[in-house]
Amino acid sequence: MQWALTHLDDIGWATWEHAVLVSVSVAVAFLISFAVAIWASRQPRVYPPIMGITALLYTIPSLALFALLIPLVGLGRVPAIIGLVAYSLLILIRNIATGLREVPADVVEAALGMGMGPWQLLLTIEMPLAMPVIIAGLRIATVTVIGIATIAAYINAGGLGTLIFTGIAQDFPAKIVVGAGLASGMAVGADAGLSRLERRLRARRAA
């Protein structure tokens, strides 16, 4: 563990890279999912095929998906982000669509009766009411992506996986322990933080 103390900057950098990789991927995935979920809520017929395709993507093991992306976009952050986005879609689209669908019909009717337009309805009524379910999706997606992003280091995307893989390659336990520990800590922390947010939103809505 001597190594950790003398390499705090490397560790900090890897953690930072990991956090950026996760944030960018989840943010991109969220924007896509949001658009798709809105589309599916207006066009219910497209929902089942979208779920089928994203479920298929979700099932493909990450290392295999990254490997399949290499011939198309090479190594580095781009295939990593594409892969991580692909994994987030199923959960995010499902939760956003479910959240929007669960908004009580009478509330929507009342809002429309008051003369709200569809966008106003979405932003001021549907989104806030759907927020706890959406945050739940965001939590699961983020935790998943934090885990899979460690593997992305193998295709040169950087992050905490780098510590793990160099640790394995050099038979250097301290690097493995630090990399695995920080990645686990980040996942557990994200899970705890986002579930607290989720609970707070639910409590506020119940009040």
């Binding site: 885990g147 593997i151 493995i176 695995a180 686990s184 996942a187 899970d191």
Partner: peptide, 17 residues
């Protein structure tokens, strides 16, 4: 529930030492 969030790679890698 906590264990579930631990990345698969972390669990495998930690076996090595």
């Amino acid at each position: 529930n906590v264990a579930r969030t631990v990345p698969s790679l972390a669990v495998l890698a930690i076996m090595l030492p």
